Simulated assay, not measured.
Amino acid sequence: MSNKLNTQSNLYSENKQALILLSTFFSKPKKGEASPLTAAEYGRFARWLHEFHYTPCSLFHQFDEIAVKWKDPKGKITTDRLANILDRKAAMGLALEKWQRAGIWVITRQDSEYPQLLKKQLRHISPPVFFGIGNIELLQKGD
């Protein structure tokens, strides 16, 4: 099964994987489990990452460096929370495989298929991850 998980996760760039981990539930949360970032929280964190020349996948390779520098002005996105959220790779792999089998596509704000009108209107609070079924090209229609 781990080969399947690795294969499924390899279909997505590290940045996409990091963004999905940071902002997506994979099952009903257990009591005391760290919740993924909300759209507003992700927007705030993403702006900070960009300002300091990091990308979401920098968390995989430079977590300690980022943890030292990052201080959430609202105190909600702690480094412990980030570490717990990022520690769900196996759950993400299973979810991605399940969604793919069900015909569900997953796009992130960084993908060209992401609805540009939504991005333009909501800017930094647009949903980091978008799920759907069917013709993904319909997302670009403004009507």
Rank of each mutant, 00 (worst) to 15 (best):
A91W: 00
L5S: 09
N15M: 03
R47Q: 10
M1E: 14
L96A: 09
I20V: 13
I104G: 07
P36N: 04
E97I: 01
I125T: 13
I125E: 08
A34R: 01
R88N: 04
V106T: 13
R88H: 05
F131P: 13
H124Q: 11
Y114Q: 12
I85Q: 03
W70L: 09
F25H: 14
L138W: 09
A83K: 14
F131H: 11
I104R: 01
K98H: 09
S35E: 08
L49W: 11
Q100G: 05
W99G: 04
L37A: 05
L82A: 08
S9E: 09
L138S: 08
K4N: 13
G134D: 02
S2F: 08
S35P: 03
I136H: 03
L94Q: 09
K141Y: 12
T24M: 15
I85F: 02
A40M: 10
K69E: 15
T79Y: 04
K28Q: 11
A46D: 13
P36R: 00
L37V: 02
I133M: 14
K74V: 10
P36F: 01
G134K: 02
T108H: 06
L37R: 00
L139A: 11
E33S: 12
K28N: 12
P127R: 06
R123H: 09
G142Y: 04
I133F: 12
Q62C: 08
Y12R: 10
L5Q: 09
E51N: 12
I85G: 05
R101M: 10
K74E: 15
T79A: 02
G132T: 04
H53E: 13
P36K: 01
P56W: 04
K89L: 07
T79P: 03
P56Y: 07
R81W: 06
N6K: 08
I77L: 09
T108Y: 02
S9K: 13
Q8W: 03
G75L: 01
F26R: 01
S58F: 14
G93V: 00
Q121K: 13
S126Q: 14
D87C: 08
T108K: 05
N15Q: 06
M1P: 12
H124P: 03
R123A: 15
E14F: 07
V68P: 05
R109Q: 14
A40V: 11
E51Q: 14
T7R: 03
N84W: 01
G43F: 13
L139W: 07
R44V: 05
L5C: 06
S126I: 15
A46Q: 12
F52L: 07
